[in-house]
Design a protein around this nucleic acid. Structure first.
Lengths: 299, 299
DNA sequence: TACTCACTATAGAAGGTGTCTATATGGTTA
DNA sequence: TAACCATATAGACACCTTCTATAGTGAGTA
């Protein structure tokens, strides 16, 4: 199989009908083009051009070759254009898997600003539990996963995002709970509202109690953070939520934080990707934004 | 624009999913492929493969590139196959322009044997006068022209074919003409049958007479050699024909040659092609056959 | 006819690039 | 843990691409 580079020279020569012009387009000298064409003709065993004093004309066989090479050349040009788009963020796609509640409250602002900055990058958001996210990552269905740390998997690269602090909150009805410090045992006397049992925040809090020899059983189990907030507000009980995600409610006084005697350990957002698989340009840009909010992306 | 040769390496690597396998297909070593891929990635500014312990996987961008390069590669493969066919005479076309009578009586046997030998070569036969043939050649409408020599044109390459000898023939009716030598003047007493006035054989014979101060005016003017023969046979007069083309009739006695006192100069078949334009493989093979009948073409 | 112009071909030299060998590194599996 | 199979890296060398300089050729023109 002939050196493909020769076909580039051939194409430009045939197109311009001149070795000299092809040389200019290739930023090389005319003898070099002459030599390349000769090489190609020898490799293929056929004369491709008739040399005249005004340039070169394709022979029959040269014309046949040209009809194919023209298309091949166009595909390569298209490929390079397309890749350039991908590099320039003028096209591309990112698939993100957000674990549970993190989707809306943590990810959404990033998605919005990213979309404003790179409007041609299509964003695809999948949400599920941490194990689902990890599976999707490994199957190539998503590029980036957003989960709670700690997470340990040799195939994953874990970057740490912001620190989040979970807490119990309640509405005005159980306001007495928020006046002094409360023990975990005391808390269990109240109706507890928790996220669905397969979520990592649920596992986290269940573990917190069991480490203290206590069994945490929710009165109500809900599937969204918004509902956890609402139910607490209107007095159904005490919700376990991420403090950062209820900042507004705490500030406006529609929710109150329950101060516990035992501190709830803080945790970090984990931005996970596959260790081996290089990120697409767009995905890399998004990850960079997550790691250093507001600092990246001036192009 | 990236070195096209790198795309060949890329394609084979992506297709096999392995640098080592691509290296084998390319008959080079694995580090060389590794280097080429790295170069390509640097040239394009994007990672194209994720390296694993089992080989390499395309990245998102790599997959995009592959979808284009695959097609380009296929076109190039097709091109090379097609050219190989042209080289092997398993496809191709020859356009031949035959001047007047030469078509049938001279060319036909060659065409038949050539077609038997290379059944996939399509033969296209055009006939016309010598100037038409030359014009068609220059316009690229035919590849080879068959004319009477002499012919002089700086743009033409003229190869000589067989020698032909023109003569006057007649049927039994004017048999007295064929018994002794006849002068041109004596011949003019008989009804002369000639080819159409734009033919080169007609010009040739008219010139022969005018050089001797005589005016040759035909009784009958015909458009085909077959008719010249037929008309002479059945006694319409004396036809001017090429002796080689009436060999059968002379042998079987249906025609008789008129022996002239002045010898008619013999002439040669000219195989003409454009000087600058290389012949297609098939055309070159045909010309070789014309030049050396029966000696070429054992493949 | 001779001159000029524009193009391609050729020769020889030099630098760059592709390829090699040898070896390191890393993941997977028994 | 060792063996195996992948890719990565380093350094050396040879080849090949490209260069400069020049020759050759045909077309157009005074």
């Amino acid at each position: 199989m002939v050196n493909f580079e020769l076909y580039k020279v051939f194409y430009l020569t045939a197109k311009s009908g001149s070795l000299s012009k092809a040389a200019k387009e290739l930023y090389i000298t005319q003898p070099s083009v002459s030599h390349s064409i000769k090489l190609l003709e020898e490799s293929l065993g056929l004369p491709l051009f008739a040399r005249t004093s005004k340039g070169v004309d394709l022979t029959k066989e040269g014309a046949v070759l040209y009809s194919y090479i023209e298309q091949a050349y166009n595909f390569i040009s298209l490929a390079e254009e397309k890749l350039s788009e991908l590099r320039n963020f003028s096209s591309g796609e990112i698939k993100i898997g957000g674990s549970d509640s993190l989707c809306k409250h943590y990810l959404l602002p990033f998605l919005e600003s990213f979309h404003v900055q790179y409007p041609h990058i299509q964003i695809n958001l999948v949400h599920g539990t941490t194990p689902e996210i990890v599976r999707n990552l490994k199957e190539g269905k998503i590029d980036i996963g957003i989960v709670r740390t700690p997470i340990h998997d040799d195939h994953l690269q874990v970057r740490e995002g912001i620190t989040i602090q979970d807490c119990f909150v309640t509405g005005p009805k159980y306001r007495e709970l928020t006046e002094g410090k409360v023990t975990l045992t005391e808390l269990l006397a109240y109706p507890i509202i928790l996220f669905s049992s397969n979520s990592s925040s649920r596992k986290f809090v269940t573990r917190l109690f069991s480490d203290n020899g206590l069994l945490l059983e929710p009165e109500i189990e809900l599937g969204s953070v918004d509902l956890l907030i609402e139910f607490a507000k209107i007095g159904f009980g005490v919700s376990f939520v991420t403090k950062e995600f209820v900042a507004k409610e705490l500030a406006e006084g529609s929710l109150y934080e329950v101060k516990l005697e035992a501190a709830i350990p803080s945790t970090k957002i984990g931005i996970i990707t596959l260790k081996n698989m290089p990120l697409s340009t767009a995905a890399a840009a998004f990850v960079a934004e997550l790691e250093n909010p507001g600092q990246v992306g001036s192009r």
